[in-house]
């Protein structure tokens, strides 16, 4: 009985699934999906090598300090970094005094201890990076209704993290002349327009991004360590810095991982021989009968 009901139920579900398949296949055959510019002209991030890549990667502290400088002088005008505290900068190789000085260069919201009014004060190491806007509505209002995302986790919140950041901020193109594999965007999609207030960027999922090109000229930042601040250099450095902000424990994680794996391989080897040993002593079949 169960089997008869089962067969009936199974046939019904299969029939409906196949019915959906027939309709789907018919629709796909008669009305194929239109190719879209987002699909045809979106680019995967360009390759980028950072010192922190790979299972043995380590932070390049000089580069992270340069990246911090780029964030501070360029990105922080619009983007917050709210999960990072100034005290975390000590991990970039700054001394305690330098961290204090770096924190004091920022203005954070505070409360007047006498009146209770909101006010501002210089940052201290325990403060977190302040947001450039008091709230999300203000951020939208100031940016053509597109809220600049917090950057603390940006490289973990996007596929290809650091490479995406690097490709995006250097990836602005002119849609009129943009080509992929010899195919021109304007030839394939003559109607493609970048709306006013947006900027064409093939590394952004829908090709039109609200962020204006952040790095426009070489030397936009004057590096403290004398490195030549080309656009390529600045974008690489800030990608490295944002890889660090997303996961400050990244290098420590891998460094913990190697001894753990080594120990486990050793212990599992022992377990293998112990298992063989135990099973070699299996009672003989003839003795038990």
């Amino acid at each position: 009985m169960i089997r008869l009901i089962g067969i009936a139920v199974g046939l019904v579900f299969s029939f409906v699934a196949l019915l959906a398949f027939v309709f789907g296949a018919y629709a796909a055959a008669t009305d194929p999906a239109e190719p879209t510019a987002e699909h045809e002209f979106h680019l995967a991030p360009r390759p980028l090598h950072l010192a922190s890549d790979g299972p043995f990667g380590k932070w390049d502290l000089q580069q992270l300090q340069r990246g911090y400088q780029v964030y501070k002088e360029v990105c922080s005008a619009c983007h917050s970094l709210k999960h990072v505290a100034f005290r975390d900068l000590a991990q970039l190789g700054y001394t305690e005094a330098e961290v204090k000085a770096a924190a004091a260069e920022w203005t954070v919201p505070g409360i007047d201890p006498n009146t209770g009014e909101t006010t501002t004060r210089p940052g201290t190491p325990t403060d977190y990076f302040p947001s450039p806007y008091p709230n999300d509505i203000a951020a939208r209002a100031a940016n053509n209704n597109a809220s600049p995302p917090d950057l603390s986790l940006i490289t973990k919140a996007r596929h290809d993290g650091g490479r995406y950041v690097h490709a995006l901020i250097t990836g602005y193109r002119d849609p009129a002349t943009f080509e992929v594999d010899g195919k021109a965007l304007k030839m394939e999609f003559p109607d493609f327009e970048t709306p006013t207030g947006l900027y064409f960027n093939p590394y952004f999922p829908n090709l039109n991004i609200a962020m204006p090109p952040p790095l426009t000229t070489d030397g936009q930042v004057t590096y403290a360590d004398g490195t030549k601040a080309t656009i390529e250099q600045m974008s690489t450095d800030v990608a490295a810095f944002l890889t660090w902000t997303a996961e400050p424990t990244l290098v420590k994680r891998r460094q913990t991982g190697w001894p753990v794996l080594g120990f486990l391989i050793f212990a599992t080897g022992l377990a293998w021989f112990a298992k063989k040993n135990v099973w070699a002593a299996k009672p003989k079949q003839t003795e038990t009968v």
Partner: peptide, 25 residues
């Protein structure tokens, strides 16, 4: 989107056929 929907429709049909029709037979 297609073709994943069509493939999953066929696979779903097999899934139910397998447990409810093929196994008893």
């Amino acid at each position: 989107e297609e073709p994943y929907l069509m493939i999953s429709q066929l696979a779903t049909a097999y899934y139910f056929l397998h447990f409810l029709v093929i196994l008893p037979i």
